[in-house]
Design a protein around this nucleic acid. Structure first.
Lengths: 101, 101
DNA sequence: TTGACATATATGAATATCTCTATATATTGG
DNA sequence: CCAATATATAGAGATATTCATATATGTCAA
């Protein structure tokens, strides 16, 4: 049985919900998948890999960066994004473990 | 390094995104928390515990049931909801492990 | 059957999300 | 500086969410 200590605070629930909502979108989840696999990708790689418009990729990337899920690092003309929220990595691996056929 | 086998199919990504979006809402995540802790709850317990309108609780519960996250069982005048998507339980426990202060 | 209680649904308004097109900004090579 | 490439942003239209109010439905006891 669970104990009261297993409950998250209201703020923790809010934060967790924000993070989950952030990755709870097909395109964004695919981006997370790609970044989890590749470690780091620039915008062009992402939008070409997923077959989506560059602007759409950029918008989703900026959204996830604003929520603290991703971070971007500019290298010359490219911006490389990576996952910075460790919870996201954990959730993704959890899903890999439990969503495979 | 990851292998191609670590990637989810497009359908699996869609399914996973739907599930994550489902629990990526403060009220729904709190409901999940409660059900994970208590095992089963009726609508009144949920809406009173969370301090939300009965109709709102019912709406979120029906949404999650429609997405296959929850199931309800009627016992007389009450309907008891429980988590039926094992992935959700895993993700919640994962979040507990990584979101505590 | 009627009343009381629990749950579900309809509806609408406010707000948010999503994606497209077009354009702007940034960086570098020449 | 200029051209080329990469990335970001603005604006708008379509769609989806969210939550409140009101009402409907279901169950049981008397």
């Amino acid at each position: 049985m669970k104990t009261p200590a297993d409950s998250l605070s209201v703020e923790a629930v809010q934060q967790a919900a924000t993070m989950l909502k952030c990755i709870g979108h097909p395109i964004r989840l695919q981006i997370i998948e790609l970044l989890d696999k590749e470690g780091e990708c620039n915008v062009t790689t992402i939008h070409e890999s997923l077959g989506i418009e560059q602007a759409v990729a950029s918008q989703h990337l900026n959204l996830m960066r604003d929520k603290g899920v991703l971070a971007g690092r500019r290298d010359g003309v490219n911006v490389y994004y990576r996952i910075v929220d460790a919870r996201v990595t954990q959730v993704i691996e959890c899903i890999h473990d439990h969503c495979q056929p």
